[in-house]
């Protein structure tokens, strides 16, 4: 029948799980982009050989337990405060590599001040921003990035922009600040996009090594539980609805 057993040999290995990922099963829902981004960060850390010098700052939200999944030192921050923690960690240990990992509620609502000022000071850190347009952990409430008309548990009839305002394009705002050196918006819903996001993450960490300032990598991602869709359907919906509002690509690259 098949000759796969002759192919499954060490010399033919082309893709395997990086050892920077822990052996723990992810707590995320099936198909959630968090896992894909975690994996990419782990791969970049492995490829740059910076596992022993990288400190991650985990947020509040679905990725509050991110520290269970990457084999690096971690600090878990209060909601929205990750950029403040990262600021101090990097300033006190400039030789280390520091990144924050934050969702839309964390980075663009409760932590807006910490986000803007860390970027404005040009803190030499990487900020990884998962934008899925909803509060996933608390059960699908409206986020600062929820699309106009998009339903959420605190706007069941859909976001009414006359009542709640337009969704915030925080990356565009942060790109205006002189302290940011690199602001990009990516996704992980296709293999090609995963490869691009990995390149963006690599660039962000290389910027930190080169002391260039703040790098922000936004990943527009899915929340199939919050959006109440299958994983595959949520990726399609994201392409049709999220990308027109949050177009992919580099917003700033200097």
């Amino acid at each position: 029948m098949s000759d796969i057993n002759t192919i499954i040999k060490p010399e033919n290995l082309t893709y395997k799980r990086t050892e920077v990922l822990s052996d723990n099963d992810l707590s995320y829902c099936p198909g959630c982009g968090h896992g894909t981004v975690h994996k990419l960060i782990a791969e970049v850390i492995e490829e740059m050989d910076i596992q022993d010098t990288t400190i991650g700052i985990a947020p509040v939200g679905c990725s509050v337990l991110a520290y269970n999944y990457l084999e690096i030192d971690w600090q878990q921050a209060a909601h929205g405060r990750a950029p403040a923690l990262a600021t101090a960690v990097k300033r006190l240990m400039p030789e280390k590599n520091v990144f924050s990992y934050q969702g839309d509620g964390d980075l663009a609502a409760i932590g807006t001040a910490e986000t803007i000022h860390a970027c404005n000071r040009g803190e030499n850190i990487v900020m990884i921003f998962i934008n899925n347009g909803i509060y996933g952990m608390t059960g699908g409430q409206m986020a600062p990035t929820t699309l106009p008309g998009m339903p959420a548990s605190t706007c069941p009839a859909g976001r009414d922009v006359s009542h709640d305002g337009e969704p915030i394009k925080i990356s565009e705002i942060l790109a205006q600040l002189p302290g940011t050196c690199y602001v990009t918006r990516q996704s992980v819903h296709t293999a090609a996009n995963v490869r691009k996001t990995k390149k963006a993450l690599r660039k962000a960490f290389e910027n930190q090594k080169a002391n260039k300032g703040t790098s922000l990598v936004e990943v527009v991602s899915n929340c199939n539980s919050g959006w109440k869709m299958t994983p595959v359907k949520s990726n399609e919906w994201m392409e049709e609805n999220m990308f027109p509002y949050y177009p992919l690509g580099d917003i700033k690259n200097k």
């Binding site: 002759t6 033919n12 290995l13 799980r17 099963d25 995320y28 896992g35 894909t36 994996k39």
Partner: peptide
């Protein structure tokens, strides 16, 4: 392999 969020696919190529 690269798109799997749970990183549970290992890939071989002859």
């Amino acid at each position: 392999g690269i798109i799997c969020p749970d990183t549970c696919i290992t890939v071989y190529r002859a």
